[in-house]
Design a protein around this nucleic acid. Structure first.
Lengths: 233, 233
DNA sequence: ACCTGAACACCGTTCAAGT
DNA sequence: ACCTGAACACCGTTCAAGT
C-alpha cells in the first residue's frame, strides 16, 4: 500500500504559457470577479466559461478541476496581505498589522470562509505569509516547535474571529434584515437562558461593525499577551 | 423598506408531532448518520429519502429546505459538548474542559467544518453551551461587553485551531497519503523560503496527532493567560 | 394530514470529435 | 495545441395530483 500522492495545483507543472488562446491567469482573474460578485455559489464552470466566451469545458485544458481553480484563486488573495518585516517594526507590531490585514482581506472576500477549512494553502503567496509569520515569532524569542505553536495559535485566533463575522455579514447585511425583528427573534431563542437575555438587553445590535472591531483588538491583545507570557516562564 | 425577517429553524414553530408517519427527529438522526459516514457531500435529499424509504420530496413536509435540516443536525452535535459548572471547578478548569470537548466533538463530526462559518447557531443546545461559557467568564471577573469579547476570543481560538486539523485529516488520513511523497512535495512548495524548509527538516510529520494535541494545549494556555491578564490591569 | 412522481433549472466532469 | 457539444450522473426545490 503505497498510498496515493497528495495532490495540489502547486505540486504539478502548469501548462506552459503559450501566446494564443486563454491563459491560466485570465481564468483565475475572471473566477475571482465571479466569486467577489456572487459568492461561492456564483462560481460554476459553466458561468465562468460564458464570462470568457468559451465553452464550459474548455477550462479543463488549463485546470484539472474546480478545486484546483479555487486553490489558485485562494492563493491570489493571500497576495493582498501585508506582513511587515518584524526586524523593522518589532514582533508585536508586525503580528498586529498582519492580523488586521488578514481580517480585512477575509472580509473583502467572504467566500474565503468556505475554503479555509477545506483547501490546503501551499501557493507561493500563502507560503510567503507563513514564512514571514514564522520569522515574526522567532524574533519574539520562540524556538523549535514552539514557533509553530505560536503561529498556529495566532492564525487560529484570526480565522476563528473573522469567520463568524463573515457569517454574520452574509445573513444580516446581505439579507437586508429588520434589526428589531431579529432582536426579538433571538430573544425568543435565548428565552430559557437568563444570562443570555441579560446580554441581549445591552445595546448589542447598535453598531455591530464597531463592536466587532473592538472585540477583535481585545482578543488580539489577549492572544499576544498570552504568547509573550510563554517566553518569560 | 422593512427588510425581510431573519430566518432559522429555531424561530419557526415545528410541525406538531403527530403519531403517524415520519418525524423530524427520525429525519435528523438519519441525516447525522449520513453526514458522519459520508461527509457533507454524502448528504443529499434524495439519498436521505432513500435511507428512510421515502421519496426525496417527502422530507419537505418536515423541513423547509436542506439548510434547515443542517441547522437541526448542527445543533444536535452541540448537545454532546461537556461544559462543567464553573462554580464547581473554577473558571479556568471549566474553560479548559469545554475547549477540549468542543475540539473532540468537531473531530468526531468533521462535516461541522463546513457549517461553522455558514449557519447561525441558535438551537437550544448551542444556546446552552453559549450560556455556560458566559457564566464561566463572568465568574472569572469579566463584566459588560468584555464578557462577550472573552467568550468570542475563546471560541475563536478553538474553532480556528480545530478547523485546519479537520482539513488535514480529510486530505491526509482519508486520502491515505504517502508520508514521504507528501514531505518531498511540501518541500518543493516551500523551496524559496529557507525558514519554512528549516521547519520541515524537523520531524514534523512524525506523529501529527500528538503534535496537534500539544499545540492545542500550548495555545489554550496562552489564550487563557492572555485573557486573565485583561482582568488585573 | 401526509406522500408521491414528474419536471425545472441547475451542477462537475468525461470524452470523442473537431480545427 | 486547443476548443467544442453531447452526454452522464448527479443536485435542491416546486407543484399538481394522489390517498
Amino acid at each position: 500500500m503505497t498510498g496515493k500522492a497528495y495532490s495540489s495545483v502547486w505540486l504539478r507543472e502548469p501548462r506552459k504559457a503559450t501566446s494564443p488562446g486563454r491563459s491560466r491567469e485570465e481564468i483565475v482573474r475572471a473566477a475571482l470577479e465571479l466569486l467577489d460578485e456572487e459568492g461561492i455559489d456564483g462560481l460554476s464552470m459553466r458561468k465562468l466559461g460564458a464570462k470568457l466566451s468559451a465553452g464550459a469545458t474548455s477550462l479543463y485544458w488549463y485546470v484539472a478541476n474546480k478545486d484546483e481553480l479555487l486553490e489558485l484563486a485562494y492563493d491570489e488573495t493571500w497576495g493582498a496581505i501585508t506582513v511587515p518585516d518584524p526586524e523593522e517594526v518589532g514582533w508585536r507590531e508586525a503580528a498586529s498589522v498582519t492580523a488586521h490585514s488578514v481580517r480585512q482581506v477575509m472580509l473583502r472576500h467572504p467566500w474565503l470562509a468556505h475554503l479555509l477549512g477545506r483547501l490546503p494553502a501551499l501557493g507561493p503567496n500563502a507560503m510567503r505569509v507563513a514564512d514571514r509569520m514564522r520569522q515574526t515569532f522567532k524574533l519574539a524569542g520562540f524556538t523549535g516547535y514552539e514557533v509553530d505553536y505560536a503561529v498556529a495559535t495566532f492564525t487560529a485566533y484570526i480565522y476563528g474571529m473573522t469567520l463568524p463575522e463573515i457569517a454574520w455579514n452574509a445573513t444580516m447585511v446581505d439579507g437586508e434584515y429588520d434589526a428589531d425583528a431579529m432582536r426579538a427573534q433571538v430573544m425568543k431563542a435565548a428565552a430559557d437562558f437568563p444570562d443570555m437575555l441579560e446580554r441581549i438587553d445591552m445595546d448589542t445590535y447598535e453598531d455591530p461593525r464597531v463592536m466587532r472591531a473592538v472585540a477583535f483588538d481585545f482578543g488580539l491583545l489577549s492572544v499576544l499577551d498570552g504568547l509573550e507570557r510563554r517566553l518569560v516562564t
